[in-house]
Amino acid sequence: MKKILILNGSPRKNGKTASLINAFSQGAERTGNEVSSLYLNSMNIKGCLACEKCSKNGGECVQKDDMETVKEAFEWADVVVFASPQFWGTITGQLKVVIDRLYSEMHRLGFENFVKETALIMTARGDNYQFALDFYAIFVNLLGWKDHGTVLGAGKEDEAREIGANIK
């Protein structure tokens, strides 16, 4: 059984991204995984200040906001799923801010304990996901996270359900 954290970066609570998240969660829970989802748009999370204080004080960020909830969930999780509609060719600002702020968590946990498994769920009007896939490759390749796959496009609930079910 895996503990799966879904970081929902969509500004629409019940939009197409949510539909894919629900399908993914159904598949993951059907095979015994535990799933938790955070709807980032309802959280108060400020952007990284690039002050580097987290690198000097054991990963403690100087900002005190809802990122504490994200960091607790991140530490709990074995798998982190990035879910977002495509904005300007990549993920939404809501999700990007959280990813930037995970920098302090990497300092707190240490690089070797920051490694997770991951998946990407995205929707868009078009079919060009290259910028988003390049960004996602940072986690898979640079950080050494295990990739469980991507779901790229609205209406792919069966694909999302299958990826969720295959996480073991």
Rank of each mutant, 00 (worst) to 15 (best):
S84M: 03
S84Y: 06
S84L: 07
P85L: 06
Q86F: 14
W88Y: 14
W88P: 13
G89M: 07
G89C: 09
G89L: 02
G89K: 02
T90F: 08
T90Q: 04
I91L: 13
I91H: 15
T92C: 05
T92G: 07
T92N: 03
T92H: 13
T92S: 11
G93M: 10
G93L: 05
G93E: 11
Q94N: 12
Q94Y: 15
Q94T: 11
L95P: 08
L95W: 03
L95F: 11
K96Y: 03
V97R: 07
V97D: 04
V97Q: 06
V97G: 12
V97T: 02
V97C: 12
V97Y: 11
V97F: 01
V97L: 02
V98P: 12
V98D: 07
I99S: 04
I99G: 07
I99W: 11
I99R: 00
D100P: 09
D100W: 01
D100V: 01
D100F: 09
D100K: 02
D100H: 10
D100S: 09
R101N: 00
R101V: 02
R101T: 04
R101M: 01
L102F: 07
L102P: 12
L102R: 00
L102W: 06
L102S: 04
Y103A: 08
Y103N: 14
Y103V: 09
S104M: 07
S104T: 02
E105W: 11
E105A: 00
E105S: 10
M106C: 13
M106I: 11
H107S: 10
H107E: 15
H107I: 13
H107P: 13
R108V: 03
R108T: 03
R108S: 10
R108L: 02
R108A: 13
L109M: 03
L109R: 04
G110M: 05
G110T: 01
G110H: 01
F111Q: 14
F111G: 13
F111S: 08
F111C: 14
E112P: 13
E112W: 09
E112V: 12
E112I: 08
E112D: 13
E112T: 15
N113P: 12
N113I: 03
N113F: 07
F114R: 00
F114K: 06
F114E: 05
F114H: 00
F114S: 04
V115K: 12
V115C: 05
V115L: 09
V115T: 00
K116V: 01
K116D: 03
K116Q: 13
K116C: 00
K116Y: 02
K116L: 06
K116E: 10
E117H: 01
E117T: 08
E117Y: 10
T118E: 05
T118G: 12
T118C: 13
A119T: 07
A119R: 02
L120M: 00
L120H: 03
L120N: 02
